[in-house]
Design a protein around this nucleic acid. Structure first.
Lengths: 136, 136
DNA sequence: TTGATTCACGTACAAGCGTACGTGTAGACT
DNA sequence: AGTCTACACGTACGCTTGTACGTGAATCAA
């Protein structure tokens, strides 16, 4: 029952939609082709499919059809990343985190944020009684 | 030139192949269906396609065909994650890291490793002269 | 030796995907 | 009014994916 999956191409367009908010095909196309050569019609098709799959809505504003994202990015991101972690890492998230930290471009600001995130996580762990059982 | 992409299903099988090393279809199937209900023939097809795409090799050992991964996991992981980061996060890796740390199951051991990784990264940054230009 | 089991291998087939063209029409320009 | 332009919408098409069946050969059990 959960909506059908998004393909890679569809995801790309969905992300742009989230980023720029409700927009006409042209706007989405312009934002997208900034980064990648892609035909107007192709974007249009993706938007149509996005709507067909329930990830976007659209209304006619005069003659122009305006598309808007329907699902929150969080949900889609969670599902997608979960799937990736399952298939490529057998369900264990750490290898992916490791990979990202080691191989991807993380700048100085990111490092401080990371440090913060980690300490935060540490705290949360300490005063959550649910984890008591973990301490065998 | 670069080998064609792996689909999700193919990736799943590729991961198993990396994990258990060179193996017959049956072994791969058994390892896989531990986690997911999947037909023997389906696994077989995936292995064939993996070979067709250049990600695996196979040889007949008697009557049994043994498949072995060809590419190193690293390369495939890098490409796949890169693609995901591009499409879903517009090329910025941090949101994904954040997501993983916040939403996925990271246990106590992982936290210490993370702390280590981050400090290591910090060091590397400090004595790498290449980054000098970054300091405007 | 005969029947059952186990494979490899070819084949299938519908749905999904990436990419795009063509046609018709509604405003914009002249 | 006539032409240009931009857009919606339908349609297309070859490729990939997910999933699997059937056939024939080889091996094992009796």
């Amino acid at each position: 029952m959960g909506k059908p999956n998004l393909s890679k191409g569809e995801m790309e367009i969905a992300r742009v939609l989230w980023e720029i908010g409700p927009a006409a095909v042209r706007a989405v196309h312009e934002a997208t082709c900034q980064q990648r050569d892609i035909d107007f019609s192709t974007v249009q098709t993706y938007l149509r499919r996005l709507e067909a799959k329930g990830y976007a809505t659209s209304t006619l504003q005069g003659r122009i059809r305006i598309y808007a994202a329907k699902e929150k990015p969080q949900a889609v991101i969670r599902d997608t990343v979960n799937d990736l972690v399952t298939r490529l890492f057998g369900g264990n998230a750490m290898p992916l985190v490791r990979h990202l930290i080691e191989e991807q471009s993380i700048d100085a600001d990111d490092i401080s944020e990371l440090k913060q995130l980690v300490s935060q996580l540490e705290e949360t762990r300490n005063d959550s009684p649910e984890d008591r059982e973990t301490r065998s």
